[in-house]
Write a protein that binds this DNA or RNA. Structure first.
Lengths: 139, 139
DNA sequence: CGGAATCCAGACGGATACTG
DNA sequence: CAGTATCCGTCTGGATTCCG
């Protein structure tokens, strides 16, 4: 029996192959850089160095890896212009563009509920703190 | 309007504090187990061992960690019944329940485009293969 | 039953140096 | 400019053991 889940809306079969594939897509969205890159490319095609500058903090190694992964999944298209110095452009494919819709929906949800989440975290952390020991202050 | 990004669709500032927080939520969704757990809890409250059985392949360590993280973010609620043997139930909070909506949207997109993505991967991998060496077949 | 604690291998990812 | 290759520390996460 395989691990995983099937249809997100009906989980009477929490371990089908379909579900594993869906999880792979969710992992892409959850990837630290991939979606940032996709959202940056929504407006227009961009060069490697433009992306690197825009996505603050990404290493060139990770940028290369992410771009390769996105290209492999058919979400972006890579175009090389045979000039000197090299000129490479990345742009969203129709598939990649269609992904932005549910991603924006999720991002909007996140933005709208950040306050709730942070409040919950603070409350939770305070509870945890009270379990560390009986009034360690003023020992 | 405050400095920084307030709209996921406009990325002229991809490294603001807001954006980082949104990324944290996306990371939750992309987490290997968290969303599987959330979707499993949509129907009804579940016990620890029920979840463990449903989510095939998860270790009890990871289940504990995931549940703690989800509880900390206010997405699920943990209820302990003081009986012997121990009985602990997990259920979605309203916040967690509201998250399922955009997640289902994303999951639906993923499910609908799995074929496209796998086709793109196959095509990409075949291109890569042709770069390994000149016709290694029939050596 | 529902964890917590420990150990440990392997994956992830940054920094750096080199190349066409 | 747009990568590739290598090194290497960090973190993730599975397996195992013990506890209330």
């Amino acid at each position: 029996m395989e691990p995983g889940i099937t249809d997100v809306t009906s989980n009477h079969d929490l371990h089908s192959a379909d579900c594993q594939k869906v999880s792979q897509v969710l992992a892409r969205v959850g990837d630290k850089w991939s979606i940032l890159i996709v959202m940056f490319l929504v407006q227009e095609p961009r060069r490697f160095s433009e992306i690197k500058r825009a996505i603050n903090g990404i290493s060139q190694r990770m940028l290369t890896l992410c771009l390769r992964g996105l290209e492999r999944d058919g979400l972006i298209k890579r175009t090389v212009y045979a000039v000197m110095p090299p000129h490479v452009e990345y742009e969203l494919t129709p598939l990649g563009r269609s992904l932005t819709e549910p991603v924006i929906a999720l991002g909007t949800w996140a933005f709208e509920h950040i306050a709730d989440i942070e409040a919950a975290r603070t409350a939770f952390d305070m509870q945890e703190e009270n379990k560390g020991g009986p009034t360690p202050w003023q020992s």
